[in-house]
Nucleic acid binder design. Structure first.
Lengths: 144, 144
DNA sequence: TATCATTTTGAGACAGCTTATCAATTTCAA
DNA sequence: TTGAAATTGATAAGCTGTCTCAAAATGATA
């Protein structure tokens, strides 16, 4: 299987090595599918992969996506009763505007905010590794 | 029962009136308990109120907290698998700096960031109702 | 105040999403 | 190649939150 995502695969292998975990066919498969997305639910990935791999279990998808979170490749985001897994490698697309009316999600990037975050962190003696910024509100359509 | 939260009770009554809903003993009780908190889960409120009112149902708590959301008194936020109901009258929410080493949490507030958030939202046609900003990293002690 | 249509409640059943269980399989270091 | 350890798939179980429905409470009206 062609592996286009060399860097992320490397990061995964490193994490696996550090924690006595193993590289499996399923983990490779799920990683490659995941990295093609910007964010996805476990359920959606399950249906998507079922076409090429009908016996891939839903539990394996969940376990693997959570593994990716541990490895720093993914980030879980809870909205309503669902969990979405964000692809962290899509740099500069970590922040979200979320409509609480129709659940539409708009991604945005703002360097000034990032800079201020660094400033706040520095002032408190922190070094930021990652962050999460979500703005909840109503989009123009749902405002009525 | 003494009602200290006159303004909020007024807002609730107004909402009830507009929607042909009724003011019940339970709704008063839950409102007063809720307004004493900054944010709380339905489950936590259930246990808290069980002491004084053992027959208050969990479903009633959920229904009532959702009613408060409709009335603009509360705001639901999803953390992990749980939903927390924020007391909207407690203005001045705080953002969090979270140390991934020792799990220390530092709260902060930054008006400039808030202003930029509004700007981003406006540019996308959104009206922000609430937000969540979490910075993950290492505190000075955990940096080694 | 009494009446009574309407709303609300409490208790538990139910539903959706996620994790735990466990026998069978796969990985990988030796 | 071997075998201890990790992983998988299938499904049961768990958790949070909503729905159901008979009984009770509310409040508009007389």
């Amino acid at each position: 299987m062609a592996n286009i995502h060399v860097k992320e695969m490397q990061a995964l292998k490193e994490h696996l090595g550090k924690h006595q975990l193993k590289l499996t066919r399923q983990r490779e498969l799920i990683l490659n599918a995941f990295l093609r997305q910007e964010h996805i639910t476990a359920e959606a990935m399950y249906h998507q992969l079922a076409k090429s791999d009908p016996h891939l279990g839903l539990a394996t998808i969940y376990r693997t996506l959570n593994l990716f979170c541990d490895a720093g490749l993914a980030q879980a985001r809870h909205f309503g009763s669902q969990t979405k897994y964000d692809n962290v490698s899509h740099k500069g697309h970590h922040d979200h505007l979320i409509c609480t009316g129709c659940e539409k999600i708009v991604e945005f990037e703002n360097e000034e905010i990032e800079r201020l975050q660094e400033e706040v962190a520095a002032r408190n003696g922190f070094i930021i590794k990652t962050h999460r910024l979500e703005l909840y509100g109503l989009c123009s359509r749902c405002r009525h």
